[in-house]
Nucleic acid binder design. Sequence first.
RNA 1: CGGAGCGUGGCGCAGCCUGGUAGCGCGCUACACUGGGGGUGUAGAGGUCGUGGGUUCAAGUCCCGCCGCUCCGACCA
Length: 437
Amino acid sequence: MRRTNFFIPTLRDTPKDAQIESHRLMLRAGMIQQASAGIYSWLPLGFRSLKKIEQIVREEQNAAGAQELLMPTLQSADLWKESGRYEDYGKELLRITDRHDRDMLYGPTNEEQITEIFRSHVKSYKSLPMNLYHIQWKFRDEVRPRFGVMRGREFLMKDAYSFDLNYRDAVHSYNKMFLAYLKTYERMGLKAIPMMADSGPIGGDMSHEFVILAETGESAVFYQRDWFEGKNLSALEETANLQNLVNGYLSKYAATEEKHDQSKCPINEKDLISTRGIEVGHIFYFGTKYSEALGAKITGPDGDEAPVHMGSYGVGVSRLVGAIIEASHDEKGIVWPEAVAPFRVGLVNIKSDDKKCVEVCEDVYSSFNETKLDILYDDRDERAGAKLNDMDLIGLPWQVIVGPRGIKSGLLELKNRRSGTTEDLSIETLKQRFLTN
RNA sequence: CGGAGCGUGGCGCAGCCUGGUAGCGCGCUACACUGGGGGUGUAGAGGUCGUGGGUUCAAGUCCCGCCGCUCCGACCA
C-alpha cells in the first residue's frame, strides 16, 4: 500500500481526552476516532490490526473444533425475559423499542440466543459435543467508559458456547478452549496468564480469566514469582492428556483481585508478585443454568432427557488491540508484534525527488507486493524526519529505509522497530530475507 | 450513580476574574529555497466561541437551563 493512497491521519499533538498510552497512541497513529463516549470508528490502519487479531482468534477456534456462525447484534427481549436476565442485567443492558413498541436490546452477550438455536435443532447426545462461536459487536452501557477501546461501550468480542452431555464432557470442552486461548495469545506475541476468577453475572462454578500483565492494567492481579518457568506451549499437541496440560498451567498460583485473599493464599507473600493486568479473555463453565431456564434438553444414551451442560468463552477482540499496544510500545510509538501489525514492513523513501531512490523503492515495493507481503510504502513528499517519526509512531516491525547515502554503494537500510538495530543490505539480500519461504 | 472539571478554526491552547475589533502554536493550501529524525521564508484559507434562554447600548466573557465530553470513586469483557 502506498502511503499517499492510504488514509492515516497521524496527530502530532496528543488529544487531551486520552489518558493511557495505548489510547493516546491509537489516536496519534490514526487508528481510531471516537464517535461518542466509549464508541469508536476504526480507521484503515486500526482496522487492519483488528482484522488480524480477529483472524488469529478465528483460526484457533476452528482448530479447537469450534464452528463459526453469526448471530445478530439486536435481540428480541423475549428470550431474555425467559432466562430472567432482562430484569437481572440492569442498566448496562441497552434497551431499545422498535416501531411496534416491541422490547429489543443490543446484545451484550449471546447465551440466550445460542441456546435458542441449539434447543430448536439438537435433541440427541449423538450430536454432541458441539461448540459454536461468533465474532460480533456487543454493547454494554458502561457507566464510565474509558481507556479507549480497552473499556468501550461497543466492542468486538468472540464468544463461543459449548454443549455437552454431562459434567465430565463439559470439562473436556472447557479444557480445549483453555488451551486454545493460550495458543491464541501466544500467536499475538502476548504472555497471558490464566487466573482464577469470579464468574460474575454470567454465573457458573468454573471460571478463568486470561490476563496480560501491564502496569496500567485495570485490575490488580497476583501470581507466583516463578509462574513463567517451565511453561512450554509447544507441548500442547493433541497427544497429551488435556487435563494434565491444563493442570500444568494451573499448578502455580495466579488470581485476580476478587479471588485473592492473602490470609488464605497458599503462597508465601515474598514469592508472590502483585501487579496489574488487563483481562483479554474469560471462560466459564456454567452447567445447566441457561439450558434449564430455556428448556434446552437432550436425550442421552439411556433414553433420559436432561438439560445440556454449557460453557461460554469470550475473547475481547477490540480490547486486544489496545491491550497489545499497552504491553508493547516505547516513547516513540507503538511496537507491533509481527503477527498483528497492520503492515509487516514499512518502506521509507528518504529523498522523494531523487530519481535513484524512487527507482529502488518502486523495485522493492513491487516485488513485496507481488508476494502479497504486507508493505506500507511512504511515498509522500515529506522530510525524512517526518516520515521516520511517523513510521516509528505507527510501529511496523520492520523499516526499509532508502536514501542517497546508501544508494551510492548499492545498499539500503533495514531497521528493526523493537530493538532499533539497523543493518545495511543489498536489495537482493533484502528480498531474500523477506520473500523466500 | 456520587464527587470534580472542561466545551473557543482539524489538533493543543490563551482570552472569561474586571463585558467593547476572536488570538497564539502546530497542522492545512500555494510558491520558493531545502532535503538522513517533524527545516526556513513569503503569501493565504479556515471559527454559528456546545446549545437555548436571560441581563445589558453591547456577551466568548455575567446569570439560569439543557446537551456533550473527560477525570476520581463505585461497577465491568
